[in-house]
């Protein structure tokens, strides 16, 4: 039949699939468009954070005498100042600096794995994928610690007008400031953490495939590139979360 012959013939005409204006494979393009849509999601989250911040009174007093209050938005340096093993020591932003370093390092090891894939160097791909999985999991562990600290709260807590004290934060009560602050913290860092977790799962899958020689038999390591794109995007989002949540 004539239909079967047209299927076997490669399409070479300009308007029937022979033209590749972006010179990228289907899979890579789809990953880019997925990441674009994901960027909108994260963008919307962070913009809502900006809106909520502008909705609340900023703290105008001296940073030294800052106290947690539901009246004003907290100063990030006063909220994120804990470090595992240094209980009660004021180390502003130290832990988040460590987390940022870990995630940037994981991005570098990922790009090294992609580079090794271009050279068809199976051993190097395995090595760098393992490092990336290690750094990614470490980041997740750090985030778990940060969350549990945020939920448990500090020893002082927040003094309410009726003399009671509240400790830690959940979706309705928040010792650091307005409840909305804690809600946004949980949603934004949680959504990012979910992405990191999915990334680690994907990395483990491509690591197993690499070890089994799936990509070597296929003749290219494009799957590593695609997961790499996703992983770098997760790092990119963290760069923005870091700025808008922890610095500004």
């Amino acid at each position: 039949m004539s239909t079967s012959t047209t299927l076997e013939k490669p399409n070479t005409g300009t308007w029937d699939g022979g033209n590749e204006p972006m010179k990228a494979s289907y899979g890579k393009l789809m990953m880019w468009f997925f990441l674009l849509s994901d960027a909108f999601t994260f963008g919307s989250f962070l913009i809502v954070y900006g809106l909520s911040r502008h909705k609340y009174l900023p703290y105008t007093g001296d940073a030294e005498t800052f106290t947690f209050s539901t009246q004003w938005w907290p100063i990030p340096e006063k909220v994120y100042n804990a470090f595992p093993g240094f209980h009660g020591v004021d180390l502003p932003l130290a832990f988040v600096a460590l987390m940022t370093m870990i995630l940037i390092l994981s991005s570098v090891t990922m790009v090294l794995a992609v580079e090794a894939g271009h050279r068809m160097d199976k051993n190097d791909v395995q090595k760098w994928l393992l490092w990336t999985i290690l750094f990614g999991s470490t980041f997740l562990g750090c985030q778990a610690w940060e969350w549990s600290h945020f939920i448990t709260g500090t020893e002082e807590g927040m003094l309410l007008s009726d003399g009671a004290r509240i400790f830690g934060a959940n979706l309705t009560v928040n010792q650091y400031g307005p409840p909305l602050f804690a809600d946004l913290f949980f949603f934004i860092t949680g959504f990012h953490g979910t992405h990191v977790f999915s990334g680690v799962v994907l990395l483990v899958m491509i690591f197993i495939n690499t070890v089994n020689g799936v990509y070597h038999k296929r003749g290219h390591y494009e799957m590593v590139e695609k997961v790499g794109l996703y992983w770098h995007f997760v790092d990119l989002v963290w760069v923005f979360v870091f700025t808008f949540f922890y610095l500004i």
């Binding site: 963008g43 919307s44 913009i47 809502v48 900006g50 809106l51 909520s52 911040r53 502008h54 909705k55």
Partner: peptide, 13 residues
């Protein structure tokens, strides 16, 4: 979206 919502937040405040 950023320009729109941040000015909205300021207006609300």
């Amino acid at each position: 979206l950023m320009v729109a919502l941040i000015s909205e937040g300021s207006y609300y405040f």
